[in-house]
Simulated assay, not measured.
Amino acid sequence: MPFATVYPLYVQKAERKGRTKEEVDRVICWLTGYSQSALQGQIKKKVDFETFFAQAPAMNPNSSLIKGLICGIRVEDIEDPLMQRIRQMDKLVDELAKGKSMEKVLR
């Protein structure tokens, strides 16, 4: 699935709860190491999630601190590395949309 298909849904979810596109971008860049321009480049290229994460400059070492439930599954228990990264991103966007402070979201 292309990352560019899901990205607008992340933004919509956050904006419905009073957060901004810039905050969503900050969370994604924190997790993946992409710069703002590189993130937009990946969206324009319509890369799939596997490529998006494979080309990520540097996954944040604190990503292992992302824990909790997403879709009824514990993020930290997901064995497939790609699916775990996807769910980590989902979790960060969820926390942002639920009103957590940026400091807490970014651990």
Rank of each mutant, 00 (worst) to 15 (best):
S64M: 10
L39V: 01
K91R: 15
R85K: 08
M59K: 08
R19G: 09
L82E: 05
L106C: 05
I78Y: 09
R107H: 14
S63V: 11
Q12H: 08
G18H: 07
R19C: 07
Q42E: 15
L9N: 10
V6N: 02
S63E: 04
E95M: 15
P57Q: 07
V105N: 06
S64P: 00
T32I: 09
M83V: 11
M83L: 12
M59P: 06
G72W: 01
M59H: 04
K104Q: 15
K46M: 09
I78V: 15
L92S: 06
N62R: 15
K104M: 13
N60Q: 09
V93F: 10
V11H: 03
Q55I: 02
V105H: 05
L106T: 09
I78G: 01
T20H: 04
T32M: 07
C29I: 05
K100E: 14
S37C: 01
L31H: 13
M1N: 02
L82Y: 10
K44I: 04
Q40M: 11
K98M: 09
E23M: 06
L96D: 10
L82C: 06
G68H: 06
D90M: 14
P81Q: 01
Y34V: 01
A38C: 01
F53H: 02
K100G: 09
Q88C: 08
L31D: 05
V47G: 04
F52H: 06
S101F: 12
M59E: 11
L82P: 14
D25W: 02
A56G: 01
R85V: 00
K46N: 11
P81E: 01
V75Y: 05
